[in-house]
């Protein structure tokens, strides 16, 4: 999800919230007969005659159809904009020029790094990929550790493997994010007494 979409979400939620607060407060005051204190000519009852007149105009169905298409398309675009698109293609390496481009498949490298990490004692499994996240090129590795794993040992393995990955990919702008998940239950036979 991009920052633009998140910003739009917040802006619309804020504006809608403010409108609802104002409308709700006005309705509550009107319901209790207090609205005339601030609005002397507040109506005694709701009249929707104006809306009925609009529905009867010859231009209304066409305008409503156009508005419906625009609203539905906007809504669908907004909805699908929430689907994350974070994949990256092959990563271009330093040394690329007109005579040829050097590229590396970042996700394959991150996958290989995850496989190395999965060999660490106390680590049950690991998977890796390279993604584009909030403007950063990020090697994301998910590690699932046993509940009794030695965290210091896992941290040391993550550092060593991360450094190797940085060397393999060879891009200064690569960042690392290793999510260490802890399994809910100990795998049978993995504990040494």
């Amino acid at each position: 999800m991009s920052r633009t979409v998140l910003g739009l979400d917040r802006l619309v939620a804020l504006l809608l919230g403010l409108v609802l607060v104002a409308a709700g407060a006005a309705a509550a005051a009107w319901g209790l007969g207090q609205l005339t204190r601030v609005w002397a000519s507040a109506p005694q009852s709701v009249s929707t005659a104006g809306a009925g007149d609009v529905y009867g105009q010859s231009w209304w169905p066409g305008a409503a159809a156009a508005a419906a298409v625009v609203l539905a398309l906007l809504g669908l675009w907004w909805l699908f904009a929430h689907v994350p698109r974070r994949s990256t293609g092959p990563l271009r390496l330093a040394g690329s020029d007109r005579s040829g481009a050097l590229a590396v498949d970042g996700s394959s490298a991150a996958s290989a790094a995850a496989a190395v990490l999965a060999e660490t004692p106390g680590v049950r499994s690991a998977s890796g990929r390279v993604v584009s996240d909030r403007g950063q090129l990020v090697a994301e590795i998910d590690v699932t550790a046993e509940p009794d794993a030695d965290l210091a040992e896992v941290a040391a393995a993550v550092d060593a493997t991360g450094a190797q990955l940085a060397q393999v990919i060879g891009r200064d702008d690569l960042r690392g994010r290793v999510a260490v998940h802890v399994a809910r239950r100990q795998r049978r036979g993995s504990r040494v007494h």
Partner: peptide, 15 residues
């Protein structure tokens, strides 16, 4: 009035 209060609370939560 009750509906108005509920609407205002939903709006506040949204803000």
């Amino acid at each position: 009035a009750a509906v108005g209060v509920v609407v205002a609370l939903v709006g506040l939560w949204s803000v």
